[in-house]
Design a protein around this nucleic acid. Sequence first.
RNA 1: UGGGGUGUAGCUCAAUGGCAGAGCGCCCGGCUGUUAACCGGGAAGUUGCAGGUUCGAGUCCUGCCGCCCCAGCCA
Length: 428
Amino acid sequence: MPIRRLGQHVGEVVTVRGWVTHLRSSGKVAFVVARDGHGSVQAVLVKADVTPETWDVFARLTQESAVALTGTVRADARAPGGFELQLRDLTLTGPSPVDYPIQPKEHGVDFLLDHRHLWLRSARQAAILRVRSEIEQGIHDFFYARDFVRVDTPILTAAIGERSGLFSTAYFDEGEAYLAQTGQLYGEAAAAALGRIYTFGPTFRAEKSKTRRHLAEFWMIEPEVAFADSADNMRLQESLVVELVARVLDRRRPELEELERDAGALERVVAPFPRIEYTDAVRTLQSRGSNITWGDDLGAEDEALLVAGAERPVFVCNYPKEAKAFYMKENPADPRTVLCDDCLAPEGYGEIIGGSQREDDHDKLEQRIRAEGLPLDAYQWYLDLRRYGTFVHSGFGLGLERTIAWICGLQHLREAIPFPRMMNRLRP
RNA sequence: UGGGGUGUAGCUCAAUGGCAGAGCGCCCGGCUGUUAACCGGGAAGUUGCAGGUUCGAGUCCUGCCGCCCCAGCCA
């Protein structure tokens, strides 16, 4: 019987299977707290009420022992959660040595990451993974409801979308293959076939980044929409973010409480999000003391300064061409800039989305590829998308872990993914 | 890669240049309602590595290594 349903079975004798998290004994009465992945329950063992054999089992229990607990469900205010099991029988089904590394106390991050496979068993980590799953399902439901088709793009690639650090590997007679940094270029091809698509998959950056906002392997969701311009694009981003936050608030309250997340801050995440032109942002930043000059990309400090006090995510749009990728469409209103946006989460969580309208002019795109020094032949198929029926289209990349970290209120991205991959961490 | 910090028991951390310590966990004992239980006792150390200064180094100096934070790269 799942622990979360015990409240509906008061007075009945049930069996719960799970793992021991806490043991307490007072000589002739003993307490076993166990979790089963959905909840936690305290079981009470009274020496006078059970056989000597059952009583002896308690002495052999250790933290993380797998057990079967059989007893009567009782409502009791003294029990965590309000219900407890008055034990009739206790079986040790999976012994655990006494050296289980993770105690119910503070540990350092490095130690915990070394034991990530066990750390996941803690209530906090389990709560994060449940929110992660909820957000993933929310993303699928959001796009399904809007007739998007999910398209899976290759992880092993030759042509590349961005030039930052690449993981490479030998690939038969074709030379080097690279782990995908984005599925976007393939997404654009699929959008011309299916209209509106999204990708959902892992992506890899070999950057030597050691910050709480970076992982070597992370998950990214990349929608691509035919006949959508930059303004449409931002509206889609806004709807998605609002829906994901609302869904977690609606369905994962207990997890947010476990994480001690301030739900009030999430409740204020409603449309519309402010939209700030890059050029205006620079002026604002200068007036607030930043020494940024037009043409610079926004640094972390600038982002923080800009978003300070905002209760909703903020769009910063239309950056200088030089600061952004080659495929972004030139802004007709100011050709020094491109039609793009970064969505900055509040509370200092930074960029969770980067999006843009794509350059749909064949010749301009070719010029940009040349100007960036990229191998033109590798991009011929991409140019074909402009050669054969070019179309206005836009899309974005949502960083899954950054979104999770923000919604859960995590200090570091490494907690937002089950087994984080960083430059100095490949195992477990 | 640059700047700052840090490394002592299984874990979390103390120790003015002068006897290597505590809490938790573990082992033994006690306790009939505990809530990271409590009480008494016990075991547990190459102070990251290599050199140097000193009568004496966990502590000071040099080099190396690991980790953390910040910046850059970006999602």
